[in-house]
């Protein structure tokens, strides 16, 4: 039981962080604070992916030692044979699990790293677009509190309705 909790405690902590970000996103009325909450949420998801890619006893996915100088070496042929016949490959997978056969060292999974690396850069790009929209909202409304903006919008809509339908009762 304790081992089960220890093995998944990271996920639960990350979910907790994610929910704090979500709460900030929901509860704050200030638009910039909301964007910060969104970026906390996003960073937590990145943490989750990266913690899935870790392998016990592994190291950063940068080849070193014997693995780095393998231009046509012994295990180069092995790797070529590996993807020449899928059956051998699957058998080797079953035998060794994720331990990188033909490799001297164990490396953590590089694929989530690549996906999250680009996600971080795209995240800052979307954040900047959001901030630009917030700046324009500030210039148009004079405030960045979402409830005040909603009230102003409602007032304008009611005034327009009253103008278009003179003599009618106020719908609100």
């Amino acid at each position: 039981m304790l081992e089960f909790i220890l093995e998944r405690g990271n996920y639960w902590a990350i979910i907790g962080l994610m929910m704090i970000g979500l709460y900030t996103l929901f509860a704050a009325t200030n638009l910039i604070k909301r964007l910060v909450g969104l970026s906390i949420f996003q960073t937590s998801i990145i943490l989750f992916y990266i913690s899935l890619s870790r392998i016990d006893g592994g190291t950063a996915p940068i080849l070193y030692g014997e693995d780095a100088k393998s231009h046509g070496g012994g295990h180069g042929e092995e790797a070529a044979a590996g993807h020449a016949s899928d059956a051998t490959h699957a058998a080797a997978d079953a035998a060794h699990g994720a331990v990188n056969h033909g490799m001297e060292h164990i490396y953590s999974n590089p694929l989530p790293h690549v996906l999250m690396l680009t996600a971080i850069v795209v995240g800052v790009a979307t954040l900047s677009v959001g901030l630009a929209i917030v700046v324009r909202i500030r210039e148009a409304y004079g405030t960045i509190e979402s409830d005040e903006i909603r009230e102003m919008d409602l007032d304008v809509a009611l005034a327009e309705y009253a103008e278009d339908h003179p003599g009618e009762a106020n719908p609100a």
Partner: peptide, 19 residues
């Protein structure tokens, strides 16, 4: 692309008149 985009974004924010 990244250096140019990030600097353009920064200039767009920083070049605006502060109210």
């Amino acid at each position: 692309a990244v250096a140019g985009s990030m600097l353009s974004i920064f200039y767009a924010f920083a070049g605006r008149v502060t109210e």
